[in-house]
Design a binder for these strands. Structure first.
Lengths: 346, 346
DNA sequence: CTGAAAGCGCTAACAA
DNA sequence: TTGTTAGCGCTTTCAG
């Protein structure tokens, strides 16, 4: 096993230590450890044995400095507690696992200054690429990304001018399509329930697309309710209660995410509101976590897994200037589009 | 703005560039950029202006090599899609945000070999500390951690022999206490529903503690159902249906996590099973995400936020050999302990 | 307060 | 197939 000398602070081992222990030059040790260049089986074995028995862990800092190659990919996302981003991460990891690249995650909490700081911090490690959520960034952030000289992929939003590559859906379009489906379903008194966060650009764009498409159909959002804080079932319940108290005539509720949408659904069921007859519901995201609810909420899948995969592939292949726009997929579930049934019973 | 010369691959800027642009020695530039040592206001201003206008981003690789100081903390967790780990991360970030340390996340997918690989990879960047989930690791992993010469905090499980520091709860104890509460509630025909994963040591330990405490009360787990795959409401429903079909006489179901527990709860309600009269239910974790369900599931909070905070503090303060055992907190909710009410009505 | 020299631990490039 | 020589871009140390 590892050589545990007395408890003094042991200096980390270096290539030189392995070199001495194996009687092979540092350079050759380096080659063995990186599987680079031809090395005889004999020396190879000697070196590996020495490295293993010493417990040598290479110093990538020195390696990266010498080779100016860093196998890190910076991934910058607003939050980990949102369920959406971990899924993107899964897609990214899935692809990077087949390469020697390693994702490094930074979290911004939806704050531009934080994003700037995290970005600066990560770029200072000279990663091989950056995957960053959203297409809205501070001037300083954009400048850093533009001049970093590495592949940059902005993900999850294609409405805007990307710095380099972009992968995701158009949230305006997602909003529009949901509006069209609702109109088609025969609903007319439409309420919106969403987040207050002015910095959640994607939610904002969905809302814009939504109202725009409603307007084209001669409709508008009748009433709305905003909240701040995490998305949770209970929030959805409360908001729905408040909104319906204020505007009892609503016949459709569009939630800005599935979690609060599910809360709204539970509220409707508890209070005996017939869904989707008397009231239609829809959320956003396609969170399968909620699959076991009594009714399946209508939603719009944003292709998070595919987004992560595609972004990672762009980085892995060192591509630039790609644009991959995914199609948001409407899932009707059990809460949208049965208005006619209700009308018949009315 | 940044000087955008023609599109040729620009060499990243170095201290030397800033030095030349500002007419100040590299050394002094370095001091300004790090706020180290005394520098006159005049030079200070010159340097900052030059750095800013060039868009200089320091190279931490070189800095780290020269100073052998790295402001990274390796955080190694099994999964991001589990809801539990993001919450721990939140606690970690919260504390590290007040320092100059940066968390770097690695994911193992509950696989020891993956853990070993990720650990090796991260240690090769010479981080200032390691926070790692669980207390079970491969020999190689333990050896790496033990000889890294940095603070190591194993989190979320205190049942075992830690390498350095440990923060978390005893899952055996959590299982025992839940068993006691169930016994006290008057339930006797107890079913267990959990994950198949033999590598989820914490779930295993809870189960062991659970059966042990039941045994002490002269009871045993009457029937059980295992599954693999992600935790989701629908899984909970299916498992509950299967288990109750097989063993209709059960009067309590203990789920290994809140998500499947919630699914079980929904199933019981849908099929008209009186909870907690005819059937008691409990999960594990205290996921407030589910707060808005019709009934609140009994659960055991594992103090994830506090765990993250405490672990980060140990790293930030460079402490060694700490042991912080948190107390799992039983939350009765609405699904445990009203057996007597039912008995009266029976 | 500022600067010059040396070197962190590794790898590119070349030599043997 | 193996070894030697120079750095990579910074910071430490010491001198002014």
């Amino acid at each position: 096993m590892t050589d545990h000398s007395p408890d003094e602070a042991r200096r980390p081992l270096t290539l030189r230590d392995v070199s001495e222990a194996s009687g092979v030059s540092e350079m050759t040790v380096s080659r063995v450890l990186r599987n680079r260049g031809d090395v005889s089986q004999a020396t190879r074995a000697k070196v590996l044995e020495a490295a293993r028995s010493l417990g040598y862990v290479p110093n990538k800092i020195a390696g990266a400095l010498a080779s100016s190659r860093v196998n890190l990919v910076a991934v910058i996302i607003p939050s980990l507690s949102n369920m959406v981003f971990p899924e993107v991460m899964t897609g990214i990891s899935e692809v990077l696992d087949d390469t020697d690249l390693q994702p490094v995650v930074g979290v911004t909490n939806y704050r531009p200054e934080q994003e700037e700081k995290v970005l600066y911090e990560m770029l200072s490690w000279r990663p091989s690429g950056v995957i960053i959520a959203g297409i809205e960034h501070s001037d300083a952030s954009r400048a850093m990304l533009a001049s970093a000289g590495i592949p940059v992929v902005e993900i999850m939003d294609t409405d805007g001018r990307p710095i380099d590559s972009v992968v995701g859906i158009s949230h305006r379009r997602a909003g529009r399509e949901m509006a069209k489906a609702i109109v088609k379903g025969g609903y007319t008194k439409i309420g919106f329930l969403g987040t207050k966060m002015p910095l959640d650009h994607r939610a904002r764009k969905r809302f814009e697309g939504f109202t725009e498409a409603l307007a084209k159909a001669g409709l508008e959002v009748h009433d709305q309710e905003f909240y701040s804080g995490g998305s949770a079932l209970s929030k959805g319940r409360e908001m729905t209660a408040a909104l319906l108290e204020r505007s009892p005539k609503l016949d459709f509720l569009y939630f800005s995410n599935d979690m609060i949408g599910a809360g709204g659904l539970l509220y409707c069921r508890d209070t005996g509101i017939d869904v989707p007859g008397r009231m239609g519901l829809a959320g956003f995201n396609g969170i399968d976590l909620l699959d076991g609810l009594p009714q399946k909420l209508a939603t719009m899948d944003a292709g998070r897994l595919d987004t992560g995969r595609a972004a990672a592939r762009i980085i892995a292949e060192g591509r630039h200037g790609e644009r991959i726009e995914l199609t948001p997929r409407l899932e009707f579930g059990d809460t949208l589009g049965r208005k006619t049934v209700f009308d018949a019973e009315d």
